[in-house]
Computed example of a mutant assay.
Amino acid sequence: MTPADLSRTVLHAVHRAVAENALRAPVPARVRVERTRPGGSGDYACAVALQLAGDAGLPALEVARILRERVAAEPGIGRVEITGPGFLSFTLDAPGDSDRAVLDAVREQGSAYGHGGALRDEVLQFHRAREVRAAVTADVVRRLGVSQGARVRISCEEAGEAGEAEWGLLGVTADAYGTPPVTSPAGPSAPLIPVRPVPAGATARELLERLGPDATRWGLLRPASHDRAPLGDELLVQGEANPLFLVRYAYARTRALTRGAAALGFTPAADAAPYERPARPLLDLLADHPRVLLAAARHRAPDRVARQLEAVAHAFFDFHDSCPPLPSGDEKPSAAHRSRLALAEAAGTVLAGGLSLLGISAPAHL
C-alpha cells in the first residue's frame, strides 16, 4: 500500500463515518498522511481526527476512535493506533499479507463475502409499479439492502400479480399492495423510496418466453435504471461478447480448475508463492468487492454489481491466460500453481455470490 492508497483509505473511512451518521462534519477534499518521525509509532501518521474534531463537536480522541474502527479492517492495514491528542498511526502489512487476508476472507465467508452491517440501523420501504423491470430491480435492491444489514419491505402500486406464474419464475414478490400509510398504530412508517427504472417495454411473460429468467434478469439489471434496457437475442449468445455468458463462463471455468487440480492431486494455498504481476488487477477487484456491494446498496444500483462481475470475469481470464493455475504437459504442480488456484477459486466465489444477489444462477458447467 502506497501513501496515496493509505490517504484514500482514510478518506473513505471518513466518508463512511459521515454516511453512517457516526460523524457530523464536512468531508475534506483529501487526507494527508506522513511518514512517522523517528521514535514514533507505526509506518505513517495522520492528523485528520484533530482536523475534524471542531466541526464534529467531539474530542479528537473520540473522532480518532470512530475512524480507527473503519480503517483497521481494510486490506493492507496491519495495525492502527491512536497516539498523542488524537493522531492515527498506521502499521502496514508486509507485502503479500493483504492479498492473503482478502483470499482468506473470501474462503471463510463464501458467497457472503462483501456482506456487512453498515445499514443495520436502516428500515427501507421501497415502492414500485406492477411492471417487470421495476419488480426485478426492487427485488435486487432488497437483496442488496439485506446483505448490508438493512430491514427491507417492498410495496407494489397494484394488486393482482401474486398468482401469476411469471412473477414466481422471476423470483419477485411484494410485501404489500397499494400505497402504505404514512403512519401506523406503532408510529410513523419508513418513508417510501420509489423504484422507477425506465420500463422494459415488454411484459414478464413475453421476456420469459423469449429469454428465460436468467437472461431476462441480466438484461433488466445491467443498464443503469435511467437507461433503456436492451432486451434482444444478444443476451442468449454463447460467446464472450455477451457479458452474461462471460461472467457465467468465468465461474464455470473456476469450477473446472478445481476439478482439474483434484484430479492432479493438489489443493489451493494462498500463501504458497508470491503472486505475479498479472494477478494484481484481479486481486484489487476482489479486495474492492465489499465496497462495491455497499455502494450498490446505498445507491439502489444493481447495475454496479453487474459491472463489477464483468470486470472480475475479464481480470480472471487475463490472469488465467498469463498465469495458468494448472500445470501443462509433464509439468508438476508447483507452489505457484497452488497460489494461482486459490486466487481462481476466490474469483469464482465472488462471481457466484454476485450472481446470487442479482437472482441469476451460476452453473458449474457451460
Results as ranks from 00 to 15, higher is better:
Gln51Thr: 14
Asp288Phe: 03
Ser328Asp: 11
Val195Phe: 05
Ser98Arg: 11
Pro230Cys: 07
Glu74Val: 14
Glu34Pro: 00
Ala347Glu: 03
Ala200Thr: 02
Ala60Cys: 05
Val292Phe: 01
Ala56Ser: 07
Glu122Asp: 06
Gly116Cys: 04
Glu310Cys: 10
Asp284Lys: 02
Ala279Thr: 03
Ala204Pro: 02
Glu331Cys: 07
Gly239Asn: 10
Asp321Asn: 14
Ile82Tyr: 09
Gly232Val: 01
Pro95Asn: 09
Arg16Tyr: 01
Val136Phe: 10
Arg222Pro: 00
Glu161Tyr: 01
Gly359Ala: 10
Ser155Asp: 13
Tyr275Ser: 03
Ala72Gln: 15
Gln308Ser: 15
Ala60Tyr: 03
Thr137Glu: 15
Asp233Lys: 09
Trp218Arg: 05
Leu283Asn: 02
Ala186Trp: 12
Leu286Pro: 03
Thr258Phe: 08
Leu192Asp: 13
Arg259Phe: 11
Ala129Pro: 00
Leu293Ala: 01
Arg253Pro: 01
Val247Ile: 15
Arg120Gln: 07
Val48Tyr: 07
Gly114Phe: 02
Arg133Pro: 09
His12Trp: 13
Leu351Phe: 03
Ala94Phe: 02
Asp55Tyr: 05
Thr36Asp: 04
Arg24Tyr: 06
Gly354Ser: 06
Arg248Pro: 05
Arg253Ala: 09
Val106Leu: 05
Gly78Asp: 15
Gly57Ile: 09
Ala73Ile: 02
Gly354Phe: 06
Phe245Ala: 08
Val10Gln: 09
Asp121Met: 02
Glu157His: 09
Glu206His: 06
Glu62Ser: 10
Gly329Asp: 06
Arg210Thr: 11
Pro188Ile: 11
Cys46Val: 03
Arg8Tyr: 10
Thr83Asn: 03
Asp321Lys: 07
His337Val: 01
Leu11Asn: 12
Leu286Ile: 08
Phe245Asp: 04
Cys323Pro: 01
Val141Leu: 10
Ala56Gln: 06
Gly76Asn: 12
His115Val: 00
His12Phe: 13
Phe126Trp: 09
Gln125Tyr: 05
Asp284Val: 02
Val132Thr: 09
Gly114Pro: 09
Pro302Met: 10
His299Ser: 11
Val247Cys: 07
Pro180Trp: 13
Leu355Val: 05
Tyr113Glu: 01
Asp93Tyr: 00
Thr179Asn: 00
Gln148Pro: 09
Thr9Leu: 15
Ala17Tyr: 04
Leu351Met: 04
Arg16Glu: 14
Arg142Glu: 12
Gly145Ile: 11
Pro302Trp: 07
Arg143Met: 08
Gln51Leu: 08
Leu52Asp: 08
Ala261Pro: 12
Gly219Leu: 06
Glu157Asp: 14
Arg255Cys: 13
Pro75Ser: 09
Ala47Leu: 11
Tyr275Phe: 15
Val80Cys: 13
Ala272Val: 04
Arg30Pro: 00
Trp218Phe: 15
Leu351Lys: 07
Glu209Tyr: 01
Gln109His: 10
Gly86Phe: 07
Pro188Met: 06
Gly232Cys: 01
Ala347Phe: 03
Pro185His: 13
Gln238Ile: 04
Ile154Glu: 02
Ser7Pro: 12
